[in-house]
């Protein structure tokens, strides 16, 4: 593995340099009391490295909440809307759970029939990861998302006087080489410090999700009354899907112009929690109850996605717990399913 060490006091300079490569996106605070959110960096001083979780994950840059697909006109039919797809971007400060989640989206959007909108954005975006400290909601270690060995161009682990940089790609290496005066070679002491930090972080997880045999247990609990009772608590707002880094469902909308001759077709984030999600023309709803829809979401993360793609559909980022207005907690629901706690 290629490594380097970035001096702490050189970070701002490094970020400024990145802005010359492309649009720099990084976690910043929204307002004085707002959440952290990925947004375009104007001033490197505003970039926050010790954030816990952004409200929206990385997917907003690859699968935007509203994504223009086509313009149409009677004369020319549907024409692909391709502008913006070639924009060079660097996302700085991504946690391993979010990097891991992006790999899940890759499986869906780059596999089978590759999605050209997603593929182009992915191709033109560099990712720079950063180490993090779990809070009481994080359970990424339970689903194998606490550490990634691929899927980034650079990954920075904060040590006392700077950042231990793992170089994950040739493009990442270029970023280091272009500003090599900001880096030095990694020493044995750095490696020792890296290992100490890694161990300390691993021991700091307070939340755990037992995943052994989970798909099988869920299968057996498909008809459980837990779904209906938890469904009564769910507000059906779909907020969990919006903030989830691995939720990718979308609906497609057609918006004509007033001339009746032209318009646009775009897609927008959808959620299996919405009543309309499974309604076919004519009105039949395949999941009429809120509990069935909540079950769909949790099944997809912990049974259906793993069965289809061979890896967890959840990265343990804790967002769905942190932002659910009804206070629903997936780790608690799964413990209930396992019979570890009584509702």
């Amino acid at each position: 593995m290629q490594t380097a060490f970035l001096f702490r006091e050189k970070l701002g300079q490094f970020l400024a340099g990145l802005r010359r490569v492309g649009t720099l996106l990084a976690p910043q605070r929204r307002g004085k009391e707002g959440h952290h959110a990925f947004s375009e960096v104007e001033d490197p001083q505003e970039v926050v490295l010790d954030y816990t979780r952004t409200l929206l994950p990385l997917k907003k840059y690859f699968l935007p909440p509203q994504d223009l697909l086509f313009r149409f006109s009677v004369a020319e039919g549907y024409q692909m809307a391709a502008e913006g797809l070639a924009e060079k971007r660097i996302v700085f400060g991504v946690h391993s759970c979010d990097l891991r989640a992006l790999q899940n989206l890759d499986l869906v959007f780059l596999g089978g029939y590759p999605d050209p909108y997603y593929a182009a954005r992915r191709e033109n975006t560099l990712l720079i990861g950063v180490s993090c400290t779990p809070d009481e909601l994080c359970f990424c270690a339970s689903v194998g998302a606490d550490s990634v060995t691929e899927g980034y161009d650079l990954f920075l682990t904060e040590l006392e006087d700077g950042y231990f940089v793992e170089i994950g790609s040739s493009a990442g290496n270029d970023l280091v080489q272009e500003q090599k005066e900001l880096f030095r070679e990694v020493t044995d002491e750095d490696v020792a410090a890296f290992k100490r930090r890694f161990k300390a972080r691993h021991q700091s997880f307070r939340r755990h999700l037992e995943t052994s045999g989970l798909p099988r247990i869920m299968s057996l609990e498909h008809a459980s009354s837990i779904w209906a009772s938890r469904g009564e608590e769910c507000l059906g707002c779909g907020g969990c899907s919006m903030v989830c880094p691995t939720c990718y469902c979308f609906s497609v909308a057609e918006v004509p112009n007033l001339d009746g001759q032209s318009g646009v077709r775009y897609r927008q984030w959808d959620s299996c929690l919405f009543k309309d999600y499974s309604v076919v023309a004519g009105g039949h709803n395949f999941r009429p109850q809120r509990g069935e829809r909540l079950r769909q979401r949790i099944f997809h993360k912990h049974k259906d996605f793993p069965e289809r793609y061979g890896r967890s559909g959840c990265v343990g980022c804790g967002r769905c717990i942190a932002f659910c207005p009804a206070g629903l907690d997936v780790t608690e629901i799964i413990r209930q399913l396992r019979g570890e706690i009584i509702a």
Partner: peptide, 24 residues
């Protein structure tokens, strides 16, 4: 089977039944 579909190519999720995509 009939299901709601948006994309027809296994992306949009609307037609998922268990680990199956009705469209694929």
């Amino acid at each position: 089977l009939e299901r709601k579909m948006q994309c027809g190519i296994g992306k949009c999720g609307n037609c998922n039944v268990g680990s199956k995509h009705t469209c694929l």
